[in-house]
Amino acid sequence: MAPRTPDGPPPAPVVQRVRLRYAKRGRLRFTSHRDFARAFERALRRAGVPMAYSAGFTPHPRVSYVGASPTGVASEAEYLEIALAERVDVERLRTVLDAALPDGLDVLEAVEAGPGSLAERIAASRWHIDLPGVPVEAAAAAVAALLARSEVLVERLTKEGRRHLDARAAIVRLAASRAVADDPAGGHAILDLVVRQVTPAVRPDDVLAALRSVAGLAPAVPPLAVRVAQGPLGDAGEVGDPLAADRTAEPGAAAFP
């Protein structure tokens, strides 16, 4: 007997691509990337988004995720791209998708994709790392010690076992300041971190491990990291908006293979 082939016509072609910025906030920052992907695909169904599907026995809605943040880390700047089989109003899409997701997984922006790939525009990430209980002076000293080094190897536990990576080379900017909400008399530190997008990615945990290794900085309370931006890296170390190019592109300018 011949192998079965999927019945019916081939999937509808892609007529529009939309890029979304979304946030992982509060307690839902403990959502893993896989958890988010499941929740997002269910939200697409609930919202009735006219998705384009892959071919095959188990067609999947065409969603491309870009540089997802690690589990337990909050983010204001996660990105993904969806491919649609019918054209939609992008702002309305943003509203219904946001409503279809649980509070804490929030869709912040939607723009029609222009030419070029989104992933290629992600060159760096900016993080704020809150260090409860750590005086700003101690944090600043540790930061200075770290920046004085050209390489700091840290260990990370991966599925393949322990591996070492350099947490220093990818750092574009690292500075400690006093957390705004704090009582100025006491005051705990907050780190402003910009890291270049490298493989494997250097994460806030790796930078914290580096600070521990070079300066013994070991907060008693777990630090809280938030990704505040990711995108192109400017000359002054600033992280730009990866959707800026799409905003200025002609609608429908992207090619649809």
Binding site: R27, L28, F30, T31, S32, D35, A39, R42, T71, G72, L101, P102, D103, G104, V221, P222
Partner: peptide
């Protein structure tokens, strides 16, 4: 509970907030 969650496996199971 929150500061303990990064130290346990699959913390998402303890946070609620489901649809």
């Amino acid at each position: 509970l929150e500061p303990l969650l990064p130290r346990v496996s699959k913390p998402i199971q303890y946070v609620g907030g489901e649809l």
